[in-house]
Simulated assay, not measured.
Amino acid sequence: MTPRLPPVLSALDLPLAELQCAVLDGELYALDQSFCAIDEFETIHLRAQSLGLVLDPRIIAERLSAAWVWGALTYPPQRHQLCVAIGARTRPHASLHATLREVVVSADEIDTVAGVSVTSRLRTVIDLLRFSETFGDRESSAIKILMADGRLDHASCSDVLSARRNLPQKRIALERLAQICAIPSDAVAG
């Protein structure tokens, strides 16, 4: 029996030139910085595995990277957005174009997908609302998809935001959430 290649390939499995030739031959497709056989459907598990090839287990995919893993974005961000719990002292692999920040995060705000830590859909929504420098159609669309897939509504998201005292960017997050959920601006509490 011939051994089967893993579903997500990188230059650790085969030379990069060979992988790129297989893409040109129609045998593989590129998935972020890795490659998959054309008979593999792009799922949240494959997306997580592609990140997991170069992530330290302490690193968590967050914001747009988490939204991509969850399937709320078609394409990964140009720079992956990653975080670690405060005190986790680690860095992403040099080949991964990423930003890394230390955050306060609880265990219930992290899900594991294919062995990779990803912020939960709720935490991803909250972080996108709070920290997106540009807040356009891409972010709004991702939040709507995450909310639908996670069965989240305006009340559940605003309750999480409102429950935290002195939360930076709370007001802008509540305003963005109201805009996405079509809630009148005078109904937004801070």
Rank of each mutant, 00 (worst) to 15 (best):
I172L: 07
Q169M: 12
D159S: 05
R121T: 00
A30W: 04
T43F: 01
C21H: 06
I126P: 08
Q78L: 15
I60R: 00
H93D: 15
A173V: 08
D127H: 05
A155I: 02
C21L: 11
D111I: 10
L31C: 06
R121G: 07
S120E: 06
L73R: 15
A182K: 10
R165N: 09
G136Y: 11
R123G: 08
A142Q: 11
V116T: 15
R164F: 01
I38Q: 07
A67I: 05
R79V: 08
Q49K: 14
W68A: 03
L100G: 02
M1F: 14
S95Y: 10
I172G: 01
L53K: 15
A148L: 08
T90S: 14
R138E: 14
L31T: 03
A114Q: 08
T2Q: 14
A187K: 10
W68V: 06
D137H: 15
I180G: 06
W68Y: 11
V116C: 10
L51P: 13
V8L: 01
L16E: 07
A37P: 09
F41V: 14
D13A: 02
I60K: 00
A17W: 03
V160D: 05
A66F: 04
S140E: 15
V84T: 14
L146C: 02
D159C: 00
V103F: 06
V84E: 08
L64S: 11
D25Q: 11
R58I: 08
D127A: 10
I143S: 05
L28N: 00
D108R: 04
D25C: 02
T124Q: 02
L46I: 09
L16N: 04
L28M: 00
A182W: 01
A178Y: 07
Q20N: 06
D108K: 07
L161C: 09
I60Y: 05
R101P: 04
E175Y: 08
D108Q: 09
A155W: 03
C157G: 00
G190P: 02
A17G: 03
S141Q: 10
L19E: 00
W68R: 07
E40R: 09
I183C: 01
A107M: 15
A11E: 15
G26W: 04
I126T: 13
S50H: 02
R165L: 11
R171W: 10
S156L: 02
Q179N: 12
I172F: 00
V8C: 06
P168L: 03
Y75N: 13
Q49A: 13
D39K: 00
A48W: 10
I126E: 12
L167V: 13
R63C: 05
T112H: 06
L51R: 12
L82W: 08
T90E: 12
A48V: 14
R138S: 07
I59N: 08
L96Q: 10
A48T: 11
I172M: 06
A114P: 08
K170Q: 14
A98N: 13
G71S: 01
S65M: 01
T112E: 15
G87W: 12
